[in-house]
Design a protein around this nucleic acid. Structure first.
Lengths: 259, 259
DNA sequence: GCGGTTTTGATTAACTATGCGCGTTTCCAA
DNA sequence: TTGGAAACGCGCATAGTTAATCAAAACCGC
């Protein structure tokens, strides 16, 4: 170490760190070290300190934002950290948004990636029933309205009659939906009836409905159905999407974007 | 030392120092020394004095602006333990809750401390308009219902007509409220009209209303009033609470608990 | 001016934060 | 299940920061 005249203060580094985490959701130690200009050891120490404070969760190889858990089979670190196609799907979805739209964001990790991209927007209004989306957007960016309702622990979303009552009063320009499974025959399906009911409400209130579903979701069927293929305006997926499903979408008049 | 006649008085230096800090948020000791034209030793002495006064926080290598604005103490074990009386107030509040109550939790850091204590309960229903309370309770514990509405960035709470519509449908057994200021003459006051409106809704829907306010809140008046002393059933504070205020509470028939 | 007090600046010893090396743990894919 | 690679945590060395001490300068009432 020769001469680091004005080294950064630890507190301000923590701020940056938390900011980065909020923005990106999940980051590896090496990325943080590079972004902050310190060694990996220091990043680990910072993470340990901040974790004690409760502002983030550490995982092997990095850290993730927020206290919210991940619904799905406990994301294993590497797949979710990489998750490049979810990111690309989110970026494609961003292009479907017009400056002053009222946007609905459903739960699910792909939609969450879109939420992070919306942090930079300020003219938008975002409506959501997802606690994790709310956390991401709570610091600023677009106007954010949460539907409220009863909290479903597993998915970290709000559902039930109160949610319905709030959604009924709204008009949505475009709704971005996630799903557990989707197929030409069964439509979209998810695990929980209350969740499905809320999703249907959102679909019904929206002028355009966009499904964000990576290719692994196709052909899968879960427990409860929440709408048919023809309710959708657009589907965004990746190129591994089965050809048969794609054909069915075209037949139903649904635009398909592959990234 | 051939100094000028008009040597700077310590007090005016303090004012400059605090001004700089507010402006920049975070500064290192050496920068301050240069800006003020004194030695680093003097700056440290000043910082130590001002920290005792509470106007700022010292950190290794410098100082950062105090909690002049909203409190978001940037989770750090050192700072979070800086409020033992808030913890004690929260513990006293816990005793007022009965097993199957429907509990409303307002925003504010003291109420947040109570939320953490409720994590162990499972029979309760918690209603809140605070995103941070929702985060704390999202992992489990009591049934949690969020009111929804538009997100106020500064306080991380949800307010507005949607919030009202949801609250209107509810009955609450006990509401735990925070406040910016409270006094016998002015009642409770807060900074934002929409926030105040939501607080009034909650007060109106609750059988019992409990104010959690450490002694520094008494005698303070903020911008918008949200209810009178007599709307409260109980006030929980610490022993430094002014005697005059206490007398006024007794006169209004409000129970007072000091921890 | 003159002692006594207060404030400031310099010096130094103790402390804290950081980076690096190394042994241990965790993860993942044969 | 097991082997290898990546990630982790700990100890140590170092540089930067702080608190303690002391002396000089400024202030103050007389």
């Amino acid at each position: 170490m020769s001469e680091q005249v004005s080294r950064e203060l630890a507190e301000s580094r923590w701020r940056k760190l938390q900011g980065l985490l909020r923005q990106r959701g999940i980051l590896r130690v090496e990325e943080l070290a590079a972004a902050l200009g310190v060694s990996a050891a220091t990043v680990r120490r910072d993470l340990a300190a901040l974790e004690r404070g409760g502002g983030l969760r550490r995982i092997h190889g990095g850290a993730m934002a927020g206290e919210g858990r991940d619904e799905e089979p406990l994301f294993d670190d590497k797949t979710s950290m990489a998750a490049p196609q979810k990111q690309r799907i989110a970026e494609a979805a961003l292009k479907l948004i017009r400056p002053r739209d009222i946007v609905y964001l459903d739960g699910g990790s792909t939609v969450l990636a879109l939420a992070r991209l919306l942090l930079a927007q300020t003219q938008l209004t975002v409506v959501t029933n997802s606690l994790r989306v709310a956390q991401v957007l709570s610091g600023g960016g677009p106007r954010m309205i949460l539907t409220g309702g009863e909290c479903r622990t597993l998915s970290q979303t709000f559902v039930g009659p109160l949610t319905r009552a709030v959604l009924e009063q709204m008009h949505l320009d475009v709704a971005f939906m996630g799903t557990i499974g989707v197929s030409a025959g069964q439509g979209m399906t998810t695990t929980d009836p209350a969740e499905a009911f809320t999703k249907e409400q959102a679909l019904a209130r929206a002028t355009r409905a966009v499904l964000l579903a990576d290719s692994t979701k196709f052909g899968k069927t879960s427990f409860v159905r929440f709408g048919a293929i023809r309710d959708l305006s657009t589907v965004i997926s990746d190129r591994q999407m089965p050809a048969g499903e794609r054909k069915a979408l075209r037949k139903a008049g649904v635009e398909t974007i592959l990234v």
